[in-house]
Protein backbone atom coordinates (compact mmCIF):
# COMPACT_ATOMS: atom_id res chain seq x y z
CA UNK A 1 0.00 0.00 0.00
CA UNK A 2 1.55 3.19 -1.13
CA UNK A 3 0.63 6.58 0.20
CA UNK A 4 0.69 9.39 -2.29
CA UNK A 5 2.38 12.57 -1.13
CA UNK A 6 1.45 14.92 -3.95
CA UNK A 7 2.13 18.06 -1.96
CA UNK A 8 5.46 16.88 -0.68
CA UNK A 9 6.64 15.74 -4.06
CA UNK A 10 5.67 18.94 -5.81
CA UNK A 11 7.27 21.12 -3.18
CA UNK A 12 10.38 18.98 -3.12
CA UNK A 13 10.79 19.27 -6.86
CA UNK A 14 10.87 23.03 -6.67
CA UNK A 15 12.73 23.40 -3.40
CA UNK A 16 15.45 20.90 -4.09
CA UNK A 17 16.16 22.63 -7.38
CA UNK A 18 16.58 25.92 -5.56
CA UNK A 19 18.82 24.37 -2.91
CA UNK A 20 20.95 22.62 -5.51
CA UNK A 21 21.52 25.82 -7.45
CA UNK A 22 22.22 27.67 -4.22
CA UNK A 23 24.78 25.05 -3.19
CA UNK A 24 26.58 25.50 -6.51
CA UNK A 25 26.51 29.24 -5.98
CA UNK A 26 27.89 28.87 -2.46
CA UNK A 27 30.66 26.68 -3.75
CA UNK A 28 31.78 29.19 -6.36
CA UNK A 29 31.33 32.18 -4.08
CA UNK A 30 33.49 30.55 -1.45
CA UNK A 31 36.71 32.36 -2.20
CA UNK A 32 35.32 35.82 -1.75
CA UNK A 33 32.14 35.45 0.30
CA UNK A 34 30.85 32.95 2.86
CA UNK A 35 30.72 29.53 1.29
CA UNK A 36 33.20 27.16 -0.21
CA UNK A 37 33.72 23.45 -0.54
CA UNK A 38 32.54 22.43 2.90
CA UNK A 39 29.47 24.58 2.99
CA UNK A 40 28.53 24.01 -0.63
CA UNK A 41 29.02 20.29 -0.19
CA UNK A 42 26.89 20.13 2.92
CA UNK A 43 24.18 22.16 1.21
CA UNK A 44 24.23 19.85 -1.79
CA UNK A 45 24.06 16.87 0.56
CA UNK A 46 21.06 18.44 2.29
CA UNK A 47 19.29 18.87 -1.04
CA UNK A 48 19.97 15.30 -2.08
CA UNK A 49 18.85 13.97 1.28
CA UNK A 50 15.61 15.86 0.81
CA UNK A 51 15.15 14.12 -2.51
CA UNK A 52 15.83 10.72 -1.02
CA UNK A 53 13.51 11.34 1.89
CA UNK A 54 10.53 12.51 -0.11
CA UNK A 55 10.79 10.12 -3.02
CA UNK A 56 11.74 6.52 -2.52
CA UNK A 57 15.28 5.36 -2.73
CA UNK A 58 15.00 3.25 -5.88
CA UNK A 59 13.59 6.01 -7.99
CA UNK A 60 16.33 8.47 -7.06
CA UNK A 61 18.93 5.81 -7.68
CA UNK A 62 17.61 5.45 -11.18
CA UNK A 63 17.81 9.19 -11.77
CA UNK A 64 21.15 9.72 -10.05
CA UNK A 65 23.21 6.57 -10.52
CA UNK A 66 26.08 7.86 -8.41
CA UNK A 67 28.43 5.67 -6.39
CA UNK A 68 29.29 7.85 -3.42
CA UNK A 69 32.30 5.73 -2.43
CA UNK A 70 33.86 6.54 -5.75
CA UNK A 71 32.87 10.15 -5.30
CA UNK A 72 34.99 10.32 -2.12
CA UNK A 73 37.94 8.79 -3.93
CA UNK A 74 37.51 11.12 -6.89
CA UNK A 75 37.41 14.15 -4.59
CA UNK A 76 40.57 13.10 -2.81
CA UNK A 77 42.37 12.49 -6.07
CA UNK A 78 41.38 15.90 -7.43
CA UNK A 79 42.56 17.59 -4.23
CA UNK A 80 45.88 15.74 -4.27
CA UNK A 81 46.45 16.38 -7.97
CA UNK A 82 45.96 20.13 -7.56
CA UNK A 83 48.49 19.93 -4.77
CA UNK A 84 50.98 18.05 -6.91
CA UNK A 85 50.53 20.62 -9.66
CA UNK A 86 52.66 23.14 -7.75
CA UNK A 87 55.55 20.69 -7.56
CA UNK A 88 55.94 21.09 -11.31
CA UNK A 89 56.79 24.76 -10.78
CA UNK A 90 59.25 23.94 -8.03
CA UNK A 91 57.03 25.21 -5.23
CA UNK A 92 56.08 23.24 -2.11
CA UNK A 93 53.17 20.81 -2.24
CA UNK A 94 49.78 22.54 -2.32
CA UNK A 95 50.97 26.01 -3.31
CA UNK A 96 47.98 27.67 -5.01
CA UNK A 97 48.10 30.10 -7.92
CA UNK A 98 45.63 32.64 -9.18
CA UNK A 99 45.33 35.15 -12.00
CA UNK A 100 42.74 37.30 -13.71
CA UNK A 101 41.55 36.60 -17.22
CA UNK A 102 39.33 38.47 -19.67
CA UNK A 103 36.46 36.36 -20.88
CA UNK A 104 33.90 37.15 -23.55
CA UNK A 105 30.52 38.16 -22.07
CA UNK A 106 31.75 37.67 -18.50
CA UNK A 107 34.42 40.32 -18.31
CA UNK A 108 37.31 39.88 -15.95
CA UNK A 109 37.18 36.60 -14.04
CA UNK A 110 39.58 35.38 -11.43
CA UNK A 111 40.73 31.80 -11.84
CA UNK A 112 42.53 30.05 -9.01
CA UNK A 113 43.94 26.58 -8.54
CA UNK A 114 42.24 26.70 -5.17
CA UNK A 115 38.97 26.13 -6.99
CA UNK A 116 39.69 22.56 -8.16
CA UNK A 117 41.10 21.88 -4.69
CA UNK A 118 37.85 23.13 -3.21
CA UNK A 119 35.99 20.99 -5.73
CA UNK A 120 37.79 17.97 -4.31
CA UNK A 121 36.66 18.92 -0.82
CA UNK A 122 33.16 19.51 -2.10
CA UNK A 123 32.98 16.05 -3.62
CA UNK A 124 34.35 14.35 -0.51
CA UNK A 125 31.87 16.13 1.75
CA UNK A 126 28.90 15.25 -0.43
CA UNK A 127 30.16 11.70 -0.73
CA UNK A 128 30.72 11.21 2.97
CA UNK A 129 27.40 12.67 4.05
CA UNK A 130 25.34 10.71 1.56
CA UNK A 131 27.31 7.52 1.90
CA UNK A 132 26.76 7.51 5.66
CA UNK A 133 23.08 8.30 5.40
CA UNK A 134 22.34 5.89 2.58
CA UNK A 135 24.26 3.03 4.14
CA UNK A 136 22.38 3.40 7.39
CA UNK A 137 19.10 3.75 5.56
CA UNK A 138 19.69 0.68 3.42
CA UNK A 139 20.66 -1.41 6.43
CA UNK A 140 17.59 -3.55 7.01
CA UNK A 141 17.77 -6.24 9.63
Amino acid sequence: MKTNFVMLHTVTRIVSFIILSFSVYLFFAGHNAPGGGFIGGLMMAGALVLLYVSFDMDRIKKVLPIDYTQMIGLGLIIAILTGLNSLVFGDPFLTQYFDYFQWPFMGEVELTTALPFDLGIFLVVVGVALLSILTIAEDVS
Partner: peptide, 12 residues
Protein backbone atom coordinates in the same frame (compact mmCIF):
# COMPACT_ATOMS: atom_id res chain seq x y z
CA UNK B 1 32.99 18.87 9.83
CA UNK B 2 35.29 16.37 11.50
CA UNK B 3 32.98 15.99 14.47
CA UNK B 4 30.20 15.33 12.01
CA UNK B 5 32.21 12.46 10.55
CA UNK B 6 33.09 11.11 13.96
CA UNK B 7 29.53 11.31 15.20
CA UNK B 8 28.23 9.46 12.18
CA UNK B 9 30.82 6.76 12.81
CA UNK B 10 29.92 6.56 16.50
CA UNK B 11 26.23 6.29 15.76
CA UNK B 12 26.78 3.33 13.51
Amino acid sequence: VISFGVTAFLLV
